[in-house]
Design a protein around this nucleic acid. Sequence first.
DNA 1: CTTTATCAAACTGTACGTCC
DNA 2: GGACGTACAGTTTGATAAAG
Length: 233
Amino acid sequence: MMGRSAASCDADLTRRIRQGDAGAFRVLMQRHNQRLFRMARGVLRDPADAEDAVQDAYVLAFTRIDQFRESSSLATWLGRIVLNEALRRLRQRRTMTGLDEEDTGGTTPGAQVIPFPGAQQAPTTPEEDASRAEVRRLLERAIDALPEPFRVVFTLREIEQMSVEETASCLGIPQDTVKTRLHRARRLLGHSLRRQLSPDLAGVFPFAGERCARIVAHVLKRLGLPDPPPDAG
DNA sequence: CTTTATCAAACTGTACGTCC
DNA sequence: GGACGTACAGTTTGATAAAG
């Protein structure tokens, strides 16, 4: 969530932007870029489109800063503009192709990994990096496959860590709807991931062969019982 | 400092109405 | 009939203040 001091800094930035201070606008963009990009990416499922949407939204915001009534935070206001722009592009894309989006199961062409928040971790091995990247791809495919309203709410709530209130305000829907959509999005995501992972689940924590034999041998030894050869019996 | 109480926010499940 | 939106209630969780 946008914190305490950030809010007051945003107020200061707003004032300077209103006076036509380009430097202030630069600071504003640097501060909100990642969040806004991911919001747009959540809607559009395409990084290049998302980037364009964010750019357009910034231009709109800069030219219409006078319309910003400080009833909500600047972050929320910007978020709403980006979402509107992203949704507009989505509608435009649909009317242009005449199709209701590409196959939701597949990977979006040109899709790339969305950087998740708090991605900075302790040093990892190449194997850990690879498996984490694989999990991330799996998640992204599952999120991209969600129906649009659920995907948008999920992106704002879970990826952007926005509150129910902020999300509702951004999308112009009741808070209850945000809650239900998030709940259903999670359920759908769970089903989807379960479907993708179930063939692999049988193979986790392999417990056979050497490990099995070792435990059996140790237990029998501790109990003072004879350890017959495997084939005996 | 630790424990307890309180409150707000979020989560979850359910019921019901609407729309396709 | 299924998907979705809305409303509501019960539960869980996290933050914080008060008491011991």
